[in-house]
Write a protein that binds this DNA or RNA. Structure first.
Lengths: 345, 345
DNA sequence: CTGAAAGCGCTTACAG
DNA sequence: CTGAAAGCGCTTACAG
């Protein structure tokens, strides 16, 4: 509102042109950093821009140029630690590059619902980043039309679900391998695994890293306990495992699951790590403050999100520096929840 | 890509018009549900739309009409439980209304940085929802130009920081009051408070609800321990309080803080709830699975997000049903972490 | 170095 | 009920 109470229309390049005494094409050249503008002209235009508080209309820019400096993140979830951290990383990088970031939640893995969400994301213009850690995400990545610039954040790089699309990933397999080796090295006969939902029907990277470590050690391999993403699922899985007295070490697909497992062991009177050792995954903020504090594997999800954006940025603007996007190395964090197995048995 | 390998330009209303043998204005009428179109004409247009896979270009729509069916959420954080849940609620409601949702993170509360983020959000077009739970959010809400449609998610409705802007809120004061009364009713002489950062210099709603309950009970009032949002802050505050043997009940500004307090009490050998009772705030997913499980107050952040969107939707489209946005009633959830004070003292 | 023209894909009056 | 014109605020060739 201005003083007279009327809503003032934002200044356009024509307003700026009038104020600076040039044509609006010249204003366009100035705001686009075009070289062939006389310095004195540029000064006048810049002064007018400043005076009028001109901001280039992003919608008009997008329509006229076909480029839109926007990215939409497609994800099945926004609150779990891993997903939320990836989103945070993408937003950080996008903001630094002056990109708008949109978000679309895949509420269902149903093909029609996924297709509709992909369409909505495409309508927004710009590029797409799809978090393909679950069936909905995997299907969304596959449903993105070929013409759309897209980057997938995938669980495992072997035959990525996005086909030949660019993708980023963390080495979950290596991380699970490390955590399992840690537990075995403490003297446990074997390690049981409580799994997060898999992105596909195939064995997940975390599961296969766990299996590999067991195999190399010649340890007996049990069936992974399939669970959900949250503490409630971990609790249910924990109760199941607690009923088996031979279980002395449990690796959990994430720290929330581990939280539920710890609770289940407490309820069934098994001490941690005295009777049972527990390890998580992700190094979520709470893991250091649980009692017992949680042994886990740190994964750099925020960095993963930044890398995903950098990759997309490179696809969208040939001029953009495609920063190398190193796969971050998972790092084992040993805390109180893991220790040697009970000696008396 | 089509079979020849060329990227096919998406169909425009002119393409549809040609295919249907009408003018493109008629196509516009059909996609806008304009009544005065002969049924047979409408049929032909609809068939052409279907055949060509036409989708109305959102950018052109926005430029031509001035409306944009988009909302940008401005927030200082996307990962903490309350913030993330509000965002989730907004996204749900926006998706149901076919609105695009954008997100801008306020990394700094610095005036210039906040102003820049508000500008970026305004550039995206559409409406704004500002989460004003912290200084950055409060400043952002205040910095939104009058002409922009905006809804604030505020901590307390008394003299809302957004001035006369529409806002939504949860009754944090009542929630803190309930939790404090619960602890006092168990026989504690008083209740100490570990505070999340306040949105302003004024006393927060949670703090004042706690104070009111103490005052009504004639309980001695201590200074709130100022903390951060996460477990680490709770841990530090917990260590401080644990050093005072007279402390028997602690209310925490959120469940993450409570998690850290529980850990601190464990480290200092105080049992919960035997020696000290602890209550949290928010009913985050992990609170039921901590050991001891956490007494807390449930707040409906997702519903709050949905309400914020409904309110904005009403502002943006006069035609839209402005669903009533009831302030959800906080609900005390009593679990293991609260009990009577130690008898021997 | 700078201006006049055409166009991005739509909508909004204005005719008929 | 339907079509021709003008315009949203920019960019992109095309002139000069």
């Amino acid at each position: 509102m201005n003083v007279t109470g009327h809503t003032r229309r934002p200044a356009s390049i024509r307003d700026v042109a009038t104020a600076a005494g040039v044509s609006y094409q010249t204003v366009s050249r100035v705001i686009n950093g075009h070289p062939s503008v006389r310095p004195s002209t540029r000064e006048r235009v810049l002064a007018a821009i400043d005076e009028l508080g001109f901001r280039r209309n992003a919608t008009a820019l997008a329509l006229a140029s076909g480029r839109s400096r926007a990215v939409t993140v497609l994800t099945a979830n926004t609150t779990h630690y891993g997903y939320a951290s990836i989103l945070q990383g993408i937003e950080e990088a996008a903001r630094a590059a002056s990109y708008a970031v949109g978000i679309g939640v895949l509420e269902s893995a149903d093909d029609a619902a996924v297709a509709a969400e992909v369409q909505r994301a495409a309508d927004a213009g710009g590029g797409l980043i799809v978090i393909a850690y679950d069936p909905a995400g995997v299907r969304a990545l596959a449903a993105v039309p070929d013409a759309l610039p897209v980057v997938g954040v995938v669980e495992t790089p072997a035959s990525p679900p996005g086909g030949d699309r660019p993708w980023v990933w963390t080495d979950d397999r290596e991380a699970a391998y490390q955590a399992t080796r840690h537990l075995l090295s403490l003297g446990h006969e074997t390690v049981h695994y409580v799994a997060i939902p898999s992105s596909t029907r195939r064995t997940s990277a975390r599961t296969s890293g766990w299996r590999q470590a067991l195999k190399e050690a010649g340890a007996p391999e049990s069936r992974p306990v399939q669970s959900s993403w949250g503490p409630a699922g971990g609790h249910a899985a924990g109760l199941k495992l607690a009923s088996d007295p031979s279980v002395t070490a449990i690796l959990c697909g994430n720290d929330d699951l581990a939280l539920g497992v710890l609770r289940a062991l407490h309820e069934t009177g098994r001490s941690v790590p005295g009777d049972v050792s527990v390890a998580g995954f992700d190094n979520a903020p709470h893991s250091a403050f649980l009692t017992p504090s949680l042994t886990t594997v740190r994964l750099d999800f925020t960095g993963l999100g930044r890398s995903a954006f950098a990759l997309l940025h490179g696809v969208l603007e040939e001029s953009a520096q495609v920063a190398p996007h190193p796969v971050s190395v998972p790092e084992l964090v040993v805390r109180e929840s893991s220790g040697p197995p009970p000696t008396s048995r």
